[in-house]
């Protein structure tokens, strides 16, 4: 089985977000970039489990980003992917990324994604890639079993779950429950240095959206403390001030 895992790079969850250059770009100073957690913990690990259950399978990483992002790719290889493709371009929009992925995703039996990236929180790319590849798309998968050419997947829906069946090939986005995080070991880290990373140029794309400016959300007024012996005061504030009761 040929398995593709698309991995993105995002600021760490704990990053302080600020914007630079007249609020036209993210201020990258002091930000630690990591592999998008849903891609790493759920998509990549479930892909490796699928490979382990199917002898002769391979797991390929696909990343759209500049050479500076190579540590993210090496980490994925250290966790256990066999090889990687890096599309040498800045990711400028979801559509741009989806087109790059589709251009490099031919011939795979399954294409894994995390459920969203923790920076843009859009959840746009997997559906676009599925459409570009004319493949079925199972989103927010939290559990998967396979039998022959059929995958049975549980997916998260609002307030519940849905169980679906789909034949390979398909596109899958992964949520919590799909797998457990793996920490790369020393052998994996050593081996990752020798695994092949193919660098390919980007295909031309006309962007359909652009970010004009960034801004920060309004700052909260600060917490109002209420005595535990006077919960009636809280009820009053929720009614009169916050107007939520």
């Amino acid at each position: 089985m040929k398995i593709l895992v698309c991995v993105s790079q995002t600021p760490d969850t704990t990053s302080k977000i600020q914007f630079a250059n007249g609020n036209t770009e993210l201020d990258k100073a002091g930000i630690q970039f990591i592999m998008n957690p849903y891609d790493e913990w759920y998509a990549l690990v479930r892909a490796l489990e699928l490979k382990e259950a199917n002898a002769g399978s391979t797991v390929t990483l696909l990343h759209v980003g500049a050479a500076a992002n190579e540590p993210t790719i090496r980490k994925g290889l250290a966790i256990g992917a066999d090889d990687a493709i890096r599309v040498d371009a800045e990711a400028t929009s979801s559509y741009f990324v989806a087109k790059q992925i589709a251009a490099n995703a031919q011939g795979f039996d399954v294409v894994f994604f995390g459920k969203e990236t923790i920076d843009y929180n859009g959840s746009e790319v997997p559906a676009m890639v599925a459409e570009l590849l004319d493949l079925p798309f199972v989103s927010y998968g939290s559990k998967m079993s396979t039998s022959g050419n059929v995958a049975t997947i549980e997916r998260d829906i609002e307030g519940g779950k849905e169980t679906v069946e789909v034949d390979f090939p398909f596109v899958l986005s992964c949520a919590k429950g799909m797998a457990e995080q793996r920490i790369p070991n020393m052998q994996g880290i050593m081996m990752s240095k020798r695994k092949p990373v193919k660098v390919v140029p980007a295909v031309a794309v006309n962007n359909t959206v652009a970010i004009k400016t960034y801004s920060l959300p309004p700052v909260k007024a600060g917490v109002k403390m209420i005595s535990p012996d006077n919960v009636e005061e809280l009820v009053k504030l929720l009614h009169n001030e916050a107007k939520v009761l």
């Binding site: 600021p11 969850t13 990053s15 977000i17 914007f19 993210l26 979801s94 559509y95 923790i118 920076d119 843009y120 929180n121 859009g122 959840s123 746009e124 359909t208 959206v209 652009a210 970010i211 004009k212 400016t213 960034y214 801004s215 920060l216 959300p217």
Partner: peptide, 29 residues
């Protein structure tokens, strides 16, 4: 063109959305 999780009405070709789990806002065209 797609903008997801919009937090403002589309005004001409402009619409806002939140980023970084609510730590930032982007104005898209």
């Amino acid at each position: 063109g797609l903008v997801s999780a919009a937090t403002t009405l589309l005004n001409g070709d402009t619409v806002n959305k939140n980023l970084f789990s609510g730590k930032g806002i982007a104005t898209y065209s």
